[in-house]
Design a binder for these strands. Sequence first.
DNA 1: TTTTACTATTAGGCATGGCTAAGAGTAAAT
DNA 2: ATTTACTCTTAGCCATGCCTAATAGTAAAA
Lengths: 230, 230
Amino acid sequence: MNGPTATKPPSTSVGDYLKAIWEVGGSGAASTTDVADRLSVASASVTNMFARLQEMGLAKYERYRGASLTERGREEALRLVRRHRLLETFLLEHLGYSWQEVHEEAERLEHAVSDGFTERLAAFLGHPDQDPHGAPIPAADGTLAAEESFPLDEVPVGDCVRISRVKHEDAAVLSFLGERELVPGRLVEVKEVRALDGVVTVEDEDGVLHSLGRPLVDLIFVRGVAADVN
Amino acid sequence: MNGPTATKPPSTSVGDYLKAIWEVGGSGAASTTDVADRLSVASASVTNMFARLQEMGLAKYERYRGASLTERGREEALRLVRRHRLLETFLLEHLGYSWQEVHEEAERLEHAVSDGFTERLAAFLGHPDQDPHGAPIPAADGTLAAEESFPLDEVPVGDCVRISRVKHEDAAVLSFLGERELVPGRLVEVKEVRALDGVVTVEDEDGVLHSLGRPLVDLIFVRGVAADVN
DNA sequence: TTTTACTATTAGGCATGGCTAAGAGTAAAT
DNA sequence: ATTTACTCTTAGCCATGCCTAATAGTAAAA
Ligand SMILES: [Mn+2]
Ligand SMILES: [Mn+2]
Ligand SMILES: [Mn+2]
Ligand SMILES: [Mn+2]
């Protein structure tokens, strides 16, 4: 089945660097410092890995300019992201994990499961297209649905929106939002966006008001809804 | 929760060596060569690891005499065996893996799952005490039920026995036995045990005869049953 | 244009876990 | 008691990834 280009899966480290470059770099290049911060490693380690990824054909690296993924690098990154998000879905929906516990476990398991496992798990889950945080799950062929959500602080006051995604990974943040049911799928009406300190106040479906500081607001993404639901 | 003796989980390599010593050594010591063969590594690598396991307090090692597990080493080994067997059960019963595919996947996953995952999976599976090959699953507290099965070739001719375990890991062997339904739980009557070449002939529940050469016979373990069922 | 403040790279180490080749130990056969 | 056939260890090497400390590059401010 594998021709002369038989490709062994990247190591845990290499995989996590690819994901970090993908997450941090957006369309352009990822800087040494940003990747170092995200992975909690020394920046010298990142410089070293950037050079190695270049040699492996997974990234393009220019000294002092950062690294960006090649097509192969992007494919590997998305394969891991697919696994990660499917695993989080499984842990939450079938093993009774809480919203804030799933990430750490998925971060390790994503490197240990095979393609076969991944696709059987996807079937077991009914081929979901979103994970528990509202993040889109890349398809098996590497396609990633474009996101049409936008940041909560860009919503005009008075508009009613549906929370579509909460950028996660911090357990304390997830606990806080989870307890208040500010989770994907929830409808909220934006009552105030205060320019001064960035605090956004929303009213949820039960009429409860929530005032959220900038660090929280930045994690919440929403989609417009046709009509006001309150 | 973790006192001053906070113990980090063993690496994949260390864990696999501990399992190998446990499997190969029985009650006594495991030899360099036996472990090397089982793990497909050079014997020099094993000598090196034996010394490291000794330093880590996981094994007792005497040069030229082999290694045996300490209490802590045995605990780590059994923790991995528990995970391995629970994972195989999950893969087979819920993800549609075949009998011969589960081992390889479990061999990797056993090192990536947490204790929390393991216990939630056990609950999800209904706390099974056997894996798909009939091997006993160690309890969460490290207890391992004594096996009361014995080798197929020790059965007196004419006796009816239940297959209780098939020592696995070779996909071709498992395919062969799986196709003939010579799997744990199956009843067979021993029709002939030929001393000359070790071939054993059994009749299964459907009256079909199977003649098995020594390499296969050695993998099959059975338990007595009260009465003849044919 | 020169400082200055970051940011990034280089240099040198360390731990883990593999390998091969060479030599030493063990134990059975002679 | 030797020889012989293995088995096991030692020595030396390599790749992967991480670290710190020192140095160099970049770009904004002065
Ligand atoms: Mn996550
Ligand atoms: Mn990861
Ligand atoms: Mn197995
Ligand atoms: Mn393993």
